[in-house]
Nucleic acid binder design. Sequence first.
DNA 1: TAGCGCCAAGTTATCGTTATCAGACCTTCT
DNA 2: AGAAGGTCTGATAACGATAACTTGGCGCTA
Lengths: 337, 337
Amino acid sequence: MQRAITMKDVAKAAGVSVMTVSRAFKADTSVRHETRQEIRKVAEDLGYVFDSTAANLRSQKTGFVAITIPLINNANFADTVGGLSDRLGENGLQVILGYTNYNIKEEERLVEQLLRRRPEAMVLTGGRHTERTRRLLNSSGIPIIETWDLPSEPIGHVVGFSNAATMQAMVEHLITTGRRRIAFIGGDTDGDTRGADRRRGFIAAMSSQGIEPTRLIGAGTPPISMREGADAMGRLLTEMPDTEAVICVSDLSAFGAMSECQRRGVRVPEDIAIAGFGAYEIADICVPTITTIDPHSRRIGEQAAELILSALKSDRGPVCIEIETNLVVRQSSMPTL
Amino acid sequence: MQRAITMKDVAKAAGVSVMTVSRAFKADTSVRHETRQEIRKVAEDLGYVFDSTAANLRSQKTGFVAITIPLINNANFADTVGGLSDRLGENGLQVILGYTNYNIKEEERLVEQLLRRRPEAMVLTGGRHTERTRRLLNSSGIPIIETWDLPSEPIGHVVGFSNAATMQAMVEHLITTGRRRIAFIGGDTDGDTRGADRRRGFIAAMSSQGIEPTRLIGAGTPPISMREGADAMGRLLTEMPDTEAVICVSDLSAFGAMSECQRRGVRVPEDIAIAGFGAYEIADICVPTITTIDPHSRRIGEQAAELILSALKSDRGPVCIEIETNLVVRQSSMPTL
DNA sequence: TAGCGCCAAGTTATCGTTATCAGACCTTCT
DNA sequence: AGAAGGTCTGATAACGATAACTTGGCGCTA
């Protein structure tokens, strides 16, 4: 590969100045229409490709918005990223992704790495961070948006909901349908802070109903897979066979749990009710369909995008948008009168 | 936000030259240990964050590897990205993602956009591209890797398999287990070129077995969801109730199809056999488990990473690595003697 | 003690674009 | 006809880092 083609080469070939070439590649700048056409043609013929590295440096604008998510392979976060990406893309902003792997120490490294690329805003999944992460973000001077949570001391903006509160609704629903011996299947570390919040919410909800929350099953380190959900359900059925309902930390583990029931001939919802979280497609397709909480993952991303766009236009004070979650009652928790 | 802190500020505060600060932030450069410590401390206190935009421009190295995938929300591609990302991350390279949305014209735009960020290598999902995409990539001068396919005229390196050939194996398996009236559920456009290749492979395999492949069900535009798989199965059961087996373009649609059977009281595999593609976790968890093809998604990413690393060290000629796929026979296609 | 080599740190120019200011040219109006 | 205003284009410097080269100091050898 010889030396790469730059604007200088295009300028020379087109017989204009570099500045004019630069303008020909921007929208809304004053270049005669034919000049722009000609320059673009020459550039294409030369095989010129714009270098945004240089442009970003000089203009001190990158057009990046960074987002941290626990892992790529999760439909909920993928939906949030999708919503964010689509809305921002329409406005010429590009999303750069980083994975925290459910670990706030890794998040710290990631945040620093992302800030090095000078994003114009940053979206975080979750509201719990290291002290240094908070410091880095605070002094970055860009809009910060925490999502999927309602942190008590937000760094900047918030688009989220209370994970604990969703469990309140779920427990009430199960009790209303006649179950009292309710179990919770979740991760056995607090790496997934949202999952941990849901477990806390479960415990609080049970206590406030006067039931001791003793049926807590640890299914492994987050993220909890279908397989781990199935294994956990196996243990639950063996060790506490009188359990009447089980709430799983996500629809994936809920589906795994339900499959285990089917394999063992345990009927859902007659023998045991099952509920998940996340409104994954599978929960609406499988037989029976699974009761879940819809956190409106995509809407979270879209709202975050709106917030960013308005914050970049004029920075008002921090905004907190609470996303309404829905309890979606399906066959897996129907009353069995 | 006041003016951002640069190396100059750190240099002044630490009483050294900018160059020394620069060196203090690199590994393996000659700076006295205490000097480096001191500089790092001063930098941290000032809240300095390294600006990789500038570094990339000056050094003409970005440390980026670009990858195009159809969409973020697909476990197979997510696995490939995961494998790639992990292997490259160990070597200081960072993955930047772009989505083609199953559209080679969008891929063209995307490729250009990604090239503007001067990646050091580029990984493509699929082997079919527009003429301009090929031209852009050829003149980029960086290693190109096409994956998830075995293109007849590769642009550069290849890490993939023949989608059509996998269907040959699947059809043979179903015929061996006593089925002849076999249907195929897939997308009704060719946007998903790999899905389209699988349909072509299905047609070829059926023909070579002397069976006319008439049972082709269009389930919508790719990607085919569980819901669309279920709907397609509904139509198939109504219109061609004598069908003995159905191959779905992915495990997700296969699961949807199977759920529809359960809803209608059609037994799997006794009344109809079902097969999918992709070795998604769900296919190994659901009841009954679903026969599938394992394309070793993660391995594709890992191999691509290896290829990139060796190509960046010393560019040999183009390499083609064929990934072995496995037919995974499960309950949904058991013989029903 | 001269001479060589090595290490740590400094100097200068530069990566490829764009901000900014200035100038040329063309209308339009008084 | 000349001033005023608009449109288009050009010259120059700069964004924040690093490559490449240079310098100064020290230790070692002959």
